[in-house]
């Protein structure tokens, strides 16, 4: 005969990922590189936005990117046009990046030679929210064509992000995008979140966002220097 007994174990299911993410964060800090991850739904304009970010930062900073994609290498090919080092992480059937994939992908790179590293996650607004990649800043993108209530439909990922970028602003008028409604829904799921509204295509609003990144890098280095 047997009778059930309850044994408390308390194990964080994502501990393995969190341990690697912590090690990565420390590695990034020591190398003085500022790491930005990008999450969004498919088709929000993430690759175009990243392409412009890389090419506009490049005259002033050393930049590189890791790109997660399910099957193709198209994004890496597009981003390579910016002349920045770009590496593809093909995830196969996996819908998100994990810290170990980032760690593997970075093995051949000398992080000390970089100022900014961008990590483009797989286009998905659900799964990436659970996985810490060791990034300094998580940026969530939504395009004006996706609807103002996107944050309310995917509150977890918006809540886990640090900054929101509303893209494809050149289409805002055509789709009658309600900026106030979008801002309200973002602030509802993530109070105090900084929001950039821009068009990677026309360049409108890019300057303010790039200045913000530069400031983040400067602040991180100032903090590291104090330690």
């Amino acid at each position: 005969m047997s009778e059930p007994r309850l044994v408390e174990v308390r194990r964080n299911v994502l501990k393995q990922n969190d341990v690697i993410a912590r090690a990565l964060r420390e590695q990034f800090r020591a190398a003085g590189v500022f790491v930005v991850s990008l999450v969004s739904s498919p088709g929000s304009g993430k690759t175009m936005f990243l392409e412009k970010t890389l090419s506009q930062l490049q005259p002033h900073y050393r930049v590189a990117a890791l790109v997660g994609d399910l099957a193709t290498e198209n994004d890496a090919v597009r981003l390579a046009r910016s002349k920045a080092p770009v590496k593809q992480i093909t995830t196969g059937t996996l819908c998100h990046l994990e810290a170990a994939m980032v760690q593997n992908a970075l093995q051949e790179w000398d992080l000390h030679q970089l100022d900014f590293l961008f990590i483009e996650n797989v286009g998905n607004l659900v799964c990436p929210s659970s996985y810490d990649l060791g990034e300094n800043l998580r940026l969530v993108l939504m395009s004006v064509t996706e609807g103002e209530d996107k944050p309310l439909k995917y509150p977890t990922i918006f809540n886990s992000a640090d900054v929101a970028v509303v893209t494809k602003n050149e289409l805002a008028e055509a789709v009658e995008f309600d900026w106030n409604a979008a801002r309200t829904s973002i602030q509802s799921v993530r109070p105090g979140m900084q929001i950039f509204r821009l068009s990677a295509k026309t360049g409108e609003g890019m300057e303010e966002y790039l200045a913000f990144l530069a400031q983040q890098l400067a602040e991180q280095r100032a903090t590291t220097a104090q330690i």
Binding site: S2, E3, R5, L6, V7, V9, R10, N12, V13, S130
Partner: peptide, 11 residues
């Protein structure tokens, strides 16, 4: 996201 406890069969 935590495995809090296990229910075990005690022989």
């Amino acid at each position: 996201l935590e495995v809090f406890a296990l229910e075990i069969e005690e022989e």
